[in-house]
Amino acid sequence: MDGIHDLGGKHGFGAVNPEANEPVFHERWEARVFAMYLQLGGNLDRSRHAIERIDPISYLADTYYGRWLGGLETRLVEDGVLSQSEINERARVLGAHSDDRVAARPSFTRGHLPDEKQSPDRLGTAERPLETSPRFALGDWVRARITSVEGHTRMPAYVRGCIGQVIGLHGGWVFPDRHAHGHGEGAEHLYTVRFATEALWGSGGEEDVELSIDLFEPYLDMVDGDD
């Protein structure tokens, strides 16, 4: 989806702001949310998509673990594990004001199906060996498709329509665009594609920069000699 999470190449965010001697977690609740996520496991692609569906203002304002919290609450409600009213009531009992906004949450849920089955191990690999041969070979020139989907995808907008060269073959992996929506794993071949900075940003890029990114086969078309 063309959401705020797809940040590559956006202007206006100012300087990077590193923090000296940064702790692993800044707040106790951040650590609790992180550990709950790991313990609950489940479909990582759906979790990512739940975070992407957070409204843009909250996405930016609530910081990283705030987004995890919102994504977690969404998943629990959408999967029927907890109801929105019981979460609200519990938060109120713990001291939340009744007019407090809930965790940063998507308001748009069309097309999001529950998982067919819960994976017991969120950290399990998403690599899935495929019988089929990869369509592209090392050195092939490929163009990233110009697609704008409403659902989950792992192709960032900034590579759309750009031509690059295949520099890595990684075999089959769970295809997030399907898996995030409860349509099975649908493994696809995964490639690393390298783009010259001019291919991405025209004359607006820096000198002597290249960008390599991992893209699934359905995101790519072969560039033939006429291109």
Binding site: R32, L69, R90, A91, A103
Partner: peptide, 13 residues
Amino acid sequence: RMALRAEALESLL
């Protein structure tokens, strides 16, 4: 507020 929300989820879960 996020701490409260996280605590609500953790206690229910």
